[in-house]
Amino acid sequence: MIHPTAVIHPDATLGTNVIIGPYVVIEGAAKIGDGCEIQAHAIIGAHVEMGRGNLIGYGAVIGGDPQDFAFKPQVRSSVRIGDGNKIREYCTIHRGTNDNSATTVGHGCFLMAGAHLAHNVSLGDHVIIANNALLGGHVQVAERVFIGGGCVFHQHIRVGRLAICQGGSAFSKDIPPFTTAAERNGIAGLNVVGLRRAGFSPATRAEIKEAFALLYRRGFNTTQALAAAKGKSWGAEAQSFFDFVAAAKKRGVCDLLASRGGGAAEEMLHPE
């Protein structure tokens, strides 16, 4: 199932039942797992390793060099992609910028057309990134995050699990888990629908709401909220919320939109 116009380097490794479309280029020692489909005009760089059952869309470029002035082409870095991902038309994923580093995509992710992952980005499992979202270098996205179309992310920030980011927003601060993020570095509320869909019990959801309120609604700054949280025993999910906040670096975490006086809507719904 390899189109005669495809150009495949002799050092490349292809698994079984791989489909390679017209004018695909597979460079160097790239490794393509069983059951993958590489659609027309896609380019797979020499430093790419992908697992089974992935779809690489038309014109996508996977494993290109980083857009980093300090990068040296002789650096040995990679892109590592798990199983069952859909990476649609014209997506770009760049390899790591330092020796032995990697840009990584987990399992079951869906990157819609035009999404960009810069060097050393890390995606957890089941992340959805809508069209034309741009992730800068070293951005870390935890599992089951939804990123709306046209969002932009500054390098080195983190997005906690089950967060949802409103389309057209911009972020240069960390986004805590379970939240809905919007506009510029804003938090609109909790991803309450996403928590239900994830199977969290009513008790766990209530505790996450309590943790959220402690950070964002009690009039504390971040340091005060973390100190207050230490005085109480939390379940695993709520504790992970505070652990994420405590691990934020100098950029800190996004603030509550309602605290800016703009009357932002809260409890935004997870999109269908």
Rank of each mutant, 00 (worst) to 15 (best):
M1A: 14
H3V: 08
A6C: 09
P10V: 04
G21M: 03
P22G: 14
V25G: 00
I26W: 00
I26P: 08
E27G: 01
G28W: 09
G28N: 09
K31Q: 15
I32G: 02
D34S: 06
G35E: 03
A42S: 14
A42K: 05
I44Q: 06
G45I: 06
G45K: 06
V48G: 07
V48C: 04
I56P: 11
G57N: 08
Y58A: 13
G59K: 10
G59E: 09
V61T: 11
V61G: 02
V61I: 15
I62H: 03
G63M: 10
G64E: 14
P66S: 03
P66Q: 02
Q67T: 11
D68K: 05
P73I: 04
Q74W: 11
R80N: 07
R88P: 03
E89R: 04
T103A: 08
M112L: 14
G114I: 04
H116V: 02
V121H: 05
V121C: 15
H126Y: 12
N132F: 08
L134K: 02
G137W: 08
H138M: 04
Q140M: 08
V145P: 03
F146I: 13
F153T: 09
H154M: 04
R158F: 00
V159W: 03
S169N: 06
F171T: 13
T180N: 02
T180A: 07
R184M: 11
N185P: 12
I187E: 03
L190S: 04
V192S: 08
V192H: 02
V192A: 09
V193G: 02
V193S: 05
R197G: 10
A198C: 02
K209R: 15
A213M: 00
L214W: 00
L215D: 00
L215S: 00
R217H: 13
G219V: 10
F220Q: 05
Q224A: 14
K232S: 03
G235K: 08
E237C: 01
Q239S: 10
F244K: 03
V245C: 11
A246K: 15
R251V: 10
C254Y: 07
L256H: 09
L257N: 14
A258E: 14
G261T: 13
G263E: 10
G263D: 12
A264L: 06
E266A: 12
E266R: 11
M268L: 15
